[in-house]
């Protein structure tokens, strides 16, 4: 890859993440596609969230492999920094499917199987076997809905499945780490999010405008006014 190419890639991805993060991080508690607010997911201690390599409870190993490959194309790990997988998106989605998003389990399983079939039909290999360019092209066809009529048996529209996974990946990467994603504040670092602050002084605002403000890397629930009365995860609240 040439320096010029790398520069163009960086600009493109930076712009994308800025746009995505503006919505994701600012909202703090975004809503999942099926209407269940992410806050309905019990917050977890950060030690519990470091589970990206653990088997998922709601998906098979094959399904997990496809989902991981898809997530890795949505927010890839590259020269700009770690991506969604590093941010713990797999574990976040698995936890979502166990709780507030449990009604989406079937949509995930059927959608991932359809994506694999679609890749076979149109590009001659399983999704995980395709080149990055072909993976991107296949995902664009999902996004635009074109994959839906190709005989791969997407339930509903392929765009609906794409948007569900994208939405959950965004939430996992840019949401508050309290909910199990954004491990080590990877997502906030990617978009230069200044962090959760209880108070913003004039000096803070001036530094922010000058792009010199030191970011705060602290969960909102580490502040007393948000943390009071909330469970801190299964290892602390005695629940299973």
């Amino acid at each position: 890859m040439t320096d010029e190419r790398r520069k163009k890639d960086a600009i493109t991805r930076r712009d994308l993440l800025k746009a995505a993060g503006a919505a994701g991080a600012a909202a703090m508690i975004p809503t999942s596609l099926d209407g269940a607010p992410v806050e309905a997911i019990r917050p977890v201690a950060s030690a519990v969230t470091a589970m990206s390599n653990a088997p998922l409870m709601n998906l098979t190993a094959r399904e997990t492999e496809i989902l991981a490959a898809m997530i890795d194309r949505l927010i890839p790990s590259d020269e700009l920094g770690p991506g969604a997988l590093d941010a713990g998106a797999l574990g976040f989605i698995d936890r979502l499917l166990s709780e507030a998003g449990s009604t989406s389990v079937d949509a995930y399983r059927s959608g991932l199987a359809a994506l694999d079939r679609y890749s076979e039909y149109t590009r001659g290999g399983r999704f995980v076997e395709l080149s990055e360019r072909d993976q991107d092209s296949a995902l664009i066809d999902l996004q635009t809905g074109g994959a839906g009529g190709a005989g791969a048996d997407f339930v509903g529209s392929s765009g609906g499945f794409f948007n569900m996974v994208k939405s959950h990946t965004w939430q996992a990467t840019f949401g508050d780490p309290h909910y199990g994603g954004n491990v080590d504040f990877i997502g906030w670092d990617l978009i230069d999010y200044p962090g959760v602050r209880m108070r913003v002084s004039d000096e803070d605002q001036r530094l922010l405008d000058a792009e010199q403000l030191e970011p705060v890397r602290r969960s909102a629930y580490d502040y007393a006014m948000f943390g009071t009365g909330r469970p801190r995860g299964p290892d602390l609240d005695g629940e299973g």
Partner: peptide, 22 residues
């Protein structure tokens, strides 16, 4: 008009072999 893959092409053999336009 749409040319969806047939179920007999699952997974990925016949379609690749027969598709002269691929």
């Amino acid at each position: 008009s749409r040319q969806p893959a047939g179920r007999d092409t699952i997974p990925g053999g016949a379609l690749r072999r027969s598709g002269s336009d691929r």
